[in-house]
Design a protein around this nucleic acid. Sequence first.
DNA 1: GCGACAG
DNA 2: ATCTTGTCGC
Length: 229
Amino acid sequence: MTVPADWPTTAEAARAEQERLRPLVVPEGPEPPRRPGTLIAGVDVAYDDERDVVAAAAVLLDYATLDVVEQVTAVGRVAFPYLPGLLAFRELPAVLDALSRLTRTPDLIVCDGYGLAHPRRLGLASHLGVHTGLPTLGIAKTPFTFTHEPPGDRRGDWSPLLDGPETVGRAVRTRQGVKPVFLSVGHRIGLPEATAVTLALTPSYRLPETTRRADSLCRRALAATVPAP
DNA sequence: GCGACAG
DNA sequence: ATCTTGTCGC
């Protein structure tokens, strides 16, 4: 899980890379085991553009208990600006760095963002799946450019996430009466299982434990890197 | 051409 | 993402 030497630095190069990677995406591939002992990884990144510093975190949870079994961080330089549709090029270098520090290989990685639900069908989660070869799933907090009917009010209710007529993911209610999360498959997983995993990771909050844990960890890592004023 | 736009 | 206070509610 290392960053290629020819990592794109311009929007043009990044879009060209997405065109090249597209055939490798396998959203309906074989499903990994989701039994007790299965390891689910969560990754997230925090930025200090002012100082050009980025901190990534990777947490490993036991799927059955949701206990943290391992957690690592990586700090580096910001490699790419934020451009809608090209988030992977901004987040992945640091994420790959953090993942490489885990001593165990995750059975599934959950991303804070999209997978298939992407203008060119290659969001952050898809991109990470292609690079690592591991199953990935994207769980986002906003609908991005997609549309959806509000899902039912109960936890577990969901509705299709649409790009025009095409279903690219699901809006899933993880807490009764609370705004849904927006999930899409990344690599080697299908929507039904992605939905089940999402619900398993949200026993008490809207966002999955993987994202919550990784988010707080990378923020702490960033704060520890930047000297207080 | 002008907005909108995962994080 | 990040900047930011108090406030309502379980």
